[in-house]
Design a protein around this nucleic acid. Structure first.
Length: 377
DNA sequence: GATGAGCGC
C-alpha cells in the first residue's frame, strides 16, 4: 500500500482560491478510508495525455511541476496546502525511497488548470517550506537536457546577501532559467551558485555580461559549469603537462639528418617566438661554448680599447663639486668631445677621477698639453 | 575558495 497522504482534510480548511469546490488532491494515492471523499478524478486521462504529449514535443504542459530541495519531513498534505492556494491541484506525490519510504527531497505537483503552474512558479519558487527554500522547475521526464549540462553556468564569489531569488532576478535577464540555486551551508550562503538556462546561448550571454562584474560590491566569476569529476580530471592533466621546476630557458633538439638541423638554424634563428628572439645554433660542448664566449668578450674589449686609443684621456684630482657638464666645459676648447664622465660611488659622491674622449688624437694631445697639472683656481 | 541534483503514476 502506498504511503502517500490524502490531503483532503487540510484542503477543507483552506480558503478557496477560485470559488469552486476544492478538488481533493488524492490523485496519486491509493489510500482510501470510509470518510474521505472518493479518490479524485484528478487529472483527466485526456488531459494527462495532452500534458505528456506537450512535454514530449518540448513545450511545457504548464500544469506539472517538479519541486525540489524539500526537507524529508515535507508531506503531500503540506504541499497541497501551499500549492492549492494558487489554483486547484489535481495531484501531488512526494517521491520516496522504495524500501525505506524516506523522502527523496522532491515532489511533483500537478495542477488542474493550465497556467496555474506558471503562477505557482512565479509566486512560490524559493519560498520556505519547513524553513527551506524550495526550488520549482517544470516537470521534465526526459532526462536528456539535465544530463548534457548545456546552458548550465557556475557563479562564485557571491555576496552572502545574494539568495536564490536575487540570483534568479539577476540572471533572468539573459534567458529562460530552468533552475537556479545558491549553495548554502549551516551559516547560510557558501558564496557560489548555479543557473541552468534553457539554451547555451543564454548561458554565453550571461557569462559575457556578468563575469568580472560587481554584484553587491563583489566581483563575481561566471563561467560554464564543469562537473566536479571533469574539473579534477582537467587539473590532473594540467599538472602532468607542467614542468615541476623552472625552465632555464634553453634546450636541445636532435635531428636525424644534418640538412634538417641546418635548415632549422637558417629558418628559426633570431625569429620572434612568444615575444622573444629565438636563439638557434649548432649545439656546442660546454667548454666549446665557454671558449667562444671568452673570445667574443675579449674581442669586444679590444675593440673598445682600440676605439679609445689615443683619444681617451684619464683625469684625476677632479674637484669634487664638478659634474660631467662642468668637466665638458673645461675640456671643450681643445676639440670635439665624444664622451665625458666623472666616476662616482653608488652613493653618487665623486671618486675624483674620470674620462674625456675626443674625436681625434691631436685634440687629445692638445688637451693634455694645456690642462695637465693645471690648477682649477 | 568554491563547479548540485534532478523527474512519477
Amino acid at each position: 500500500m502506498s504511503a502517500s497522504v490524502s490531503p483532503s482534510v487540510q484542503a477543507a480548511e483552506l480558503p478557496s482560491t477560485n470559488g469552486k469546490t476544492e478538488q481533493p488532491a488524492a490523485g496519486e494515492t491509493t489510500a482510501t478510508n470510509g470518510t474521505s471523499p472518493k479518490p479524485a478524478a484528478a487529472t483527466p486521462a485526456k488531459q494527462q495525455q495532452a500534458n505528456q504529449a506537450a512535454a514530449n514535443d518540448g513545450s511545457q504542459p504548464n500544469t506539472s511541476l517538479y519541486v525540489g530541495e524539500l526537507d524529508p519531513s515535507v508531506t503531500e498534505a503540506m504541499l497541497f496546502e501551499i500549492f492549492n492556494m494558487i489554483g486547484p491541484v489535481s495531484s501531488i506525490r512526494v517521491c520516496r525511497d522504495a524500501v525505506t519510504r524516506r523522502s527523496l527531497g522532491y515532489a511533483y505537483v500537478n495542477f488542474l488548470n493550465s497556467n496555474d503552474g506558471e503562477r505557482a512558479m512565479d509566486q512560490l519558487n524559493y519560498s520556505l517550506i519547513r524553513g527551506r527554500p524550495c526550488r520549482i522547475m517544470w516537470s521534465q521526464r526526459d532526462p536528456a537536457l539535465r544530463r548534457t549540462g548545456q546552458g548550465n553556468i557556475f557563479i562564485k564569489n557571491l555576496d552572502e546577501g545574494i539568495d536564490n531569488k536575487a540570483l534568479h532576478d539577476t540572471f533572468s535577464a539573459f534567458g529562460n532559467i530552468l533552475s537556479c540555486k545558491v549553495a548554502v551551508g549551516e551559516g547560510g550562503s557558501l558564496g557560489y551558485g548555479f543557473v541552468h538556462y534553457e539554451t547555451q546561448e543564454a548561458a554565453d550571454n550571461a557569462i559575457e555580461h556578468v563575469n568580472g562584474m560587481l554584484l553587491n560590491d563583489k566581483k563575481v566569476y561566471v563561467g560554464n559549469h564543469i562537473p566536479r569529476k571533469e574539473r579534477l580530471q582537467k587539473i590532473e592533466e594540467a599538472k602532468a603537462r607542467l614542468p615541476t621546476c623552472k625552465s632555464r630557458g634553453f634546450g636541445f633538439v636532435n635531428y636525424e639528418h644534418h640538412d634538417a638541423a641546418q635548415n632549422a638554424v637558417t629558418e628559426l634563428h633570431d625569429m620572434d617566438f612568444h615575444g622573444q628572439k629565438l636563439f638557434v645554433a649548432r649545439a656546442q660542448k660546454k667548454t666549446e661554448r665557454e671558449e667562444e664566449l671568452r673570445r667574443s668578450y675579449e674581442a669586444a674589449k679590444n675593440e673598445k680599447l682600440s676605439k679609445f686609443e689615443g683619444v681617451n684621456l684619464y683625469l684625476k684630482n677632479i674637484p669634487e663639486e664638478f659634474d660631467d657638464e662642468r668637466l665638458r666645459e673645461e675640456f671643450a676648447p681643445f676639440g670635439t668631445i665624444t664622451s665625458c664622465k666623472i666616476m662616482r660611488a653608488p652613493s653618487g659622491i665623486s671618486r675624483g677621477f674620470g674620462f674625456v674622449c675626443y674625436s681625434a688624437p691631436d685634440e687629445a694631445n692638445k688637451a693634455v698639453a694645456e690642462m695637465n697639472g693645471k690648477n682649477d683656481g
